[in-house]
Design a protein around this nucleic acid. Structure first.
Lengths: 195, 195
DNA sequence: CGTAACATTTAACAATTTGTTAACATTTGC
DNA sequence: GCAAATGTTAACAAATTGTTAAATGTTACG
């Protein structure tokens, strides 16, 4: 159980749960912000996020859904009721068949998150962890430009502070291994995957 | 997981499970009806059917048993408790001769969970318990990378606290006994079985 | 019960890989 | 052409894993 938004994001990245319950009034970073950030991360693509709040404010409700929440539960609620509500959410959102195979196939690349492997035209390419994460992030939404800031938030722990330019070096290594065409520079903005 | 009685029957016919848990209050066709129907089908002759219900009503209980249920579990019940209850039912109804052989054959290995034995190209290899568990876990999904955290959760009791690095030593012993190619390191992530 | 044999865990250090930075070169858009 | 942004390189720092040995637990057996 995380006590604030920052902890929530950190712990969620570590344990990758199927469902996250966010209290809107957590200190430091609130639940809405945590949700917004997690929604930009590919590993939470299939995670359900539910808001829990004491006040039934219109604002909270609207803001929560806008950042990608899947449901909304009003406090006070008895623990048992909360559990059954959560079960209901999981049930109604259960995938028909769970064939979720974390493979990403784009262009001449196959990115297998489970095996931590990348194949290019059938050839195995060995990437270091940060390189892999970077590629996976960009490739999870081909064409979308990721600013260095967003990339940092996604791939680095919150506590770690690194120069923006570090990303450039990792990009360079990706290009070295996969060819210059894989990642495109958008000057003044960031990088994007080229499908 | 089926969401109602009709689905339950359909899915059961498809997958022919050893045990079916029926919720009495499923919509459309309730669990009792599902049980009655399945009991008339020859393919479910040896299938155990267990009822799960929220209310401990006499009616449910009696009606359930009358249609051929094998046991009855009252809700609320914690998932873990449910699992152990189910295991108990399966165990006490286990056929005299357990012909289930949990043999895993991968590459030049044969991993026999029942006998706790590993053969490599026909040669018996003796592994300690932890080594065996570790190999079995990794081999159960070749290619998939297991983080140390996941490995710990799977092989060690929840109460036991051990250093991550303990795993490294067991990996080393596995490599010593089976060769370096069996388990691959994914730096920064974990280990995986190499098919 | 004690002991030997074995299994498990930890700690320490070495080896290796990966990540980061800084400096300088190059490119880009105005 | 100029300034800002990015590319490139290599040195250094940090993190991760490999390896070994010793300490601690556990089990089987006389």
């Amino acid at each position: 159980m995380a006590r604030n938004g920052q902890e929530a994001v950190a712990e969620a990245k570590r344990s990758l749960p199927d469902l996250i319950v966010l209290d809107i009034m957590m200190p430091k970073m609130d639940g809405i912000e945590a949700c917004r950030i997690m929604r930009t991360m590919p590993e939470f693509k299939n995670t359900f996020m539910v808001f829990l709040t004491a006040r039934s404010e219109e604002y909270s409700e609207i803001a929560g859904f806008n950042v990608g929440a899947d449901d909304y539960i009003a406090k006070p609620i008895k623990p048992r009721a909360l559990v059954s509500r959560i079960n209901a959410i999981l049930r109604r959102n259960a995938p028909a068949e769970d064939v979720t195979d974390n493979k990403l196939e784009i262009g001449d690349l196959v990115i297998d998150r489970e095996a931590y492997l990348v194949f290019q035209r059938g050839e195995k390419v060995v990437l270091a962890k940060k390189e892999f994460e970077l590629l996976y992030l960009l490739a999870s939404k081909p064409g979308k430009v990721y600013t260095r800031e967003v990339i940092l938030k996604n791939i680095w722990e919150d506590s770690v502070v690194v120069t923006n330019r570090t990303i450039d070096v990792h990009i360079r290594k990706l290009r070295e291994k996969l060819g210059d065409d894989v990642v495109a520079t958008v000057k003044g903005v960031g990088y994007k995957f080229e499908g």
